[in-house]
């Protein structure tokens, strides 16, 4: 215990994790608050629901956090999710025993290729990340619509059953989420690649002077983001039993909000996916709460927009004071 307290007093710890800790503190208070209001909140059914709804957003948000760390951003992640979702469904062979392999593999590759294209345009050609990914978002959406003009298609039953299944009463995706969290965190915090990503985001000139291939680093970061978004797309295909070319449209903005709530900053180099996870859960719970309270879906649109702006504003203002 004293060790923990000592650690928390350390400057490095404070600097790196203040955002994360704030996010979790808020999350816990929020959960207690909802729990008091509504008895149905802490039921296994509702909690699994939260996990299912949160999972794809967690994936996209992790990707967004990586992009933010490079002092970049990727508005097209939502549409990459849509596209890989459609690719997965279209190439799925529902009736063969291993019919899910091609679909899933193609979807993941699609995500990476999309990330690669974004990365090249931003890193190599030095185009403004926001406007490039905004336009690419339209392109990816168009391709998704071309592949699957209407929501539909069918999924490999065994695969869907696996992803929707439970282990010891806990949804399988929860474990999947933990695995992804551990891997992404390890890559970002423990490997040279993670350090390069943060160095490029924190001080591009310095990173360059140190001999870091900044272009390559940015490309890899965007590819990772694309891959993670594709994982989200594959999961949604299994969860909804079908594909939908517009399913990802709202994810990009929410992913940015989750990252910022979780302590990442627009100016790069600062952020941790652990915090991002809290950010996603907070946003999901707000939705969950609005549903439990029976607020109309139209009001939810409005509230979400306001909450996201408020969250991002808090993040920006905090960053300005830094």
């Amino acid at each position: 215990m004293t060790k923990v307290l000592k650690l928390m007093k350390e400057e490095k710890f404070k600097y790196k994790y203040s955002g994360v800790i704030m996010a979790y503190l808020f999350l816990v208070l929020f959960m207690v608050f909802i729990g008091m209001f509504d008895d149905s909140f802490f039921t296994g059914r509702n909690l699994s629901n939260v996990i299912y709804t949160a999972f794809p957003l967690v994936m996209v948000s992790f990707g967004q956090t990586i992009c933010l760390l490079t002092h970049g951003i990727d508005i097209s992640l939502g549409m990459i999710l849509s596209l890989s979702n459609c690719v997965c469904i279209v190439l799925m062979k529902p009736d063969e025993p291993l019919g899910w392999v091609t679909g899933v593999a193609a979807a993941l590759v699609t995500g990476m290729v999309c990330g690669l294209i974004n990365g090249i345009l931003i890193g190599r050609f030095r185009l403004a990340a926001l406007i490039v990914t905004l336009s690419m978002s339209t392109v990816y959406g168009g391709i998704a619509l071309y592949l699957l003009p209407m929501p539909g298609g069918s999924i490999h039953k065994g695969f869907a059953k696996f992803l929707r299944g439970k282990l010891c009463g806990i949804p399988v995706v929860f474990f999947l989420l933990l695995i992804v969290l551990v891997i992404v965190r390890a890559v970002l915090n423990q490997t040279p690649l993670g350090r390069k990503i943060r160095a490029v985001g924190g001080n591009y000139a310095a990173a360059y002077a140190t001999g870091i291939d900044a272009v390559r680093t940015k490309i890899i970061a965007h590819m990772l983001a694309g891959l993670l978004s594709a994982v989200g797309g594959v999961f949604l295909a299994a969860y909804m039993y079908s594909g939908d070319p517009t399913i990802g449209s709202s994810y990009s903005l929410r992913a940015i909000a989750s990252s910022i709530i979780g302590g990442a900053v627009f100016s790069g180099a600062v952020g941790d996916v652990l915090g991002t996870l809290a950010g996603v859960v907070i946003l999901t719970l707000i939705n969950n709460m609005l549903n439990l309270l029976g607020i109309s879906s139209y009001f939810q649109f409005l509230l979400q927009g306001i909450i996201i702006i408020a969250a991002l504003a808090l993040g920006s203002l905090k960053n300005v004071n830094r």
Binding site: K12, R195, R198, A199, G201, G202, N203, A205, A206, A207, A209, T210, G268, A269, V270
Partner: peptide
Amino acid sequence: LTLVGEMT
């Protein structure tokens, strides 16, 4: 200076 301010 060629340091990244946000890192240790």
